[in-house]
Design a binder for these strands. Structure first.
Lengths: 135, 135
DNA sequence: CGGAATCCCGCTTGATACTG
DNA sequence: CAGTATCAAGCGGGATTCCG
């Protein structure tokens, strides 16, 4: 349960505050997409193997078809996933991760793993804050 | 410019779809916080060294004091940062990263670094998608 | 200086219905 | 099956004002 990491080496991190102007900040530009409510879930699913639309819908129980469509299009637009249509009857559409998507998911999966491992720590900090808030 | 990573080892990733129910999904619970419009920027700044309220405000030029206050409180609530009040006149408040915050920032910084490195790739994919959209 | 409180707008999201 | 279209609600977030 103990937090494993202390202060890491941060010297080479992209903390360049000179590029934080809203328009051309890479961090914002990329994060604003993958930070969406559903993006990480979809990326996580597709990192495993390709899936069809309906399969993804079942994998992420409470996503609406509207949001699934939109999230998939956004991820495709940024080059993270590919969309392949099979003109069968009824039609079938398969989504799969691109090399760029995999290259993103590599560091991203570390964050997701952190979330899974440290969820309890975060929840604990939360209740502690909510409780002893006044003092 | 070339994308460096191909399919990485994903066997051990937390792709457990059984825990994707909205309520208890660790990924959503953690990501929904750090995915905020400003959270990563603040974490990035505080990963360097502690800062005071006004300093952070200057570091992130286009954040409103409302959002800065709220983001800082949320990050503090989840245990990522600490808040220390110096009862001077006028008062001074310093924010600094906690060990938990550093342990999160370690994997997170890899994503931020990816964003900086691959921003061009994403932008290229975007324009390509927007152009040849119809065919 | 470091906030809290209030007002208000607009984008995101969800529910529903329709189409190829 | 895999979407698109439309409408309405919610809340994220900005501008402003006031306080210790």
């Amino acid at each position: 349960m103990a937090v494993t990491a202390s202060k890491p080496t941060l010297a080479e991190q992209p903390c360049d505050t000179s590029t934080w102007d809203a328009g051309n900040c890479p961090v914002r530009d990329v994060m604003n997409q993958i930070a969406g409510k559903w993006s990480t879930l979809i990326l996580q699913a597709l990192s495993e193997k390709p899936y069809r639309f309906g399969e993804l819908r079942r994998l992420v129980p409470d996503i609406s078809q509207r949001m699934l469509t939109q999230t998939l299009r956004d991820l495709q637009r940024d080059g993270y996933i590919d969309r392949q249509v099979f003109p069968t009857k009824p039609p079938s559409v398969e989504y799969r991760m691109t090399p760029l998507g995999y290259s993103l998911f590599e560091p991203l999966s570390a964050v997701l793993a952190w979330a899974a491992s440290n969820h309890a720590n975060v929840r604990a900090a939360r209740s502690k804050f909510d409780a002893g808030d006044l003092r």
